[in-house]
Amino acid sequence: MNNKKIVEIFSKSLGISEEIICDSLEYNSIPEWDSIAHMTLISELEDGFDIMLDTDDIIEMSSVSKAKDILGKHNISF
């Protein structure tokens, strides 16, 4: 369920198709995932999972895989 949710959030925040969202997708590797979109993504992840992320986590969230690790610290499992 959380896998589906994170893919939906990435898709909506970055304005990209769900098909291209995989664990290895990295920040700045596509034009849609730039610093501006990153902050929108953070906001949507916080809203979607009802959490508040640390600033360090935001800086370290460099891929979908890393995003899952960081959300894991908030007891959100994938």
Binding site: M39, I42, S43, E46, D47, M52, T55
Partner: peptide
């Protein structure tokens, strides 16, 4: 403001 701006942006 690092934290507050994110809350306001919502």
């Amino acid at each position: 403001l690092q934290y507050a701006s994110r809350l306001l942006a919502r």
